[in-house]
Computed example of a mutant assay.
Amino acid sequence: MRVFVMDNNIDQALKVLKKRLQREGLFREMKRRRAYEKPSERRIRERAEAVRRSHKLARKKAQREGLIAAPKRVEKKRPTSVPR
Rank of each mutant, 00 (worst) to 15 (best):
residue 76 K to R: 14
residue 38 K to F: 03
residue 41 E to N: 14
residue 70 A to T: 06
residue 42 R to F: 06
residue 57 L to Y: 06
residue 57 L to I: 07
residue 41 E to Q: 15
residue 33 R to G: 02
residue 53 R to A: 07
residue 66 G to A: 08
residue 65 E to S: 08
residue 79 P to G: 14
residue 74 V to W: 09
residue 71 P to M: 12
residue 70 A to R: 14
residue 50 A to K: 15
residue 39 P to K: 07
residue 54 S to Q: 13
residue 78 R to V: 10
residue 68 I to M: 02
residue 62 A to P: 05
residue 58 A to I: 02
residue 61 K to N: 12
residue 75 E to S: 11
residue 71 P to V: 09
residue 67 L to A: 01
residue 65 E to C: 09
residue 36 Y to P: 10
residue 46 E to W: 03
residue 40 S to D: 11
residue 75 E to N: 07
residue 60 K to D: 15
residue 69 A to W: 00
residue 44 I to S: 09
residue 42 R to A: 12
residue 79 P to R: 15
residue 55 H to N: 14
residue 36 Y to A: 15
residue 45 R to T: 01
residue 55 H to V: 14
residue 44 I to H: 12
residue 60 K to S: 11
residue 63 Q to K: 15
residue 38 K to N: 01
residue 77 K to G: 04
residue 56 K to V: 02
residue 37 E to Y: 02
residue 56 K to I: 09
residue 36 Y to Q: 15
residue 53 R to Q: 14
residue 43 R to K: 13
residue 72 K to S: 03
residue 52 R to M: 04
residue 47 R to V: 08
residue 35 A to Y: 14
residue 70 A to M: 03
residue 42 R to Y: 08
residue 79 P to T: 11
residue 65 E to H: 08
residue 59 R to V: 07
residue 31 K to I: 13
residue 72 K to A: 09
residue 57 L to G: 02
residue 37 E to N: 06
residue 39 P to L: 07
residue 52 R to H: 09
residue 63 Q to P: 04
residue 78 R to H: 10
residue 42 R to W: 04
residue 79 P to C: 13
residue 35 A to N: 12
residue 51 V to A: 01
residue 43 R to M: 03
residue 34 R to E: 13
residue 45 R to P: 04
residue 32 R to I: 12
residue 75 E to D: 12
residue 61 K to M: 12
residue 79 P to D: 10
residue 45 R to H: 04
residue 68 I to C: 01
residue 74 V to M: 11
residue 36 Y to I: 14
residue 52 R to K: 13
residue 63 Q to N: 06
residue 57 L to E: 11
residue 64 R to V: 01
residue 70 A to Q: 08
residue 45 R to L: 00
residue 43 R to W: 02
residue 72 K to R: 08
residue 66 G to P: 05
residue 63 Q to V: 06
residue 75 E to C: 09
residue 66 G to S: 05
residue 74 V to N: 11
residue 61 K to R: 15
residue 36 Y to N: 12
residue 48 A to I: 02
residue 67 L to I: 02
residue 55 H to F: 08
residue 71 P to I: 12
residue 41 E to G: 07
residue 46 E to T: 08
residue 43 R to V: 00
residue 78 R to C: 08
residue 72 K to H: 02
residue 58 A to E: 11
residue 68 I to W: 01
residue 69 A to R: 12
residue 73 R to C: 02
residue 46 E to Q: 11
residue 47 R to I: 07
residue 56 K to W: 07
residue 77 K to Y: 03
residue 57 L to W: 03
residue 66 G to Q: 02
residue 53 R to I: 02
residue 55 H to E: 13
residue 78 R to N: 11
residue 67 L to F: 00
residue 63 Q to D: 03
residue 59 R to Q: 11
residue 33 R to T: 04
residue 73 R to T: 05
residue 52 R to Y: 07
residue 32 R to N: 08
residue 58 A to Y: 00
residue 73 R to N: 05
residue 74 V to E: 10
residue 55 H to I: 15
residue 74 V to P: 03
residue 55 H to A: 10
residue 74 V to T: 07
residue 33 R to H: 03
residue 33 R to A: 05
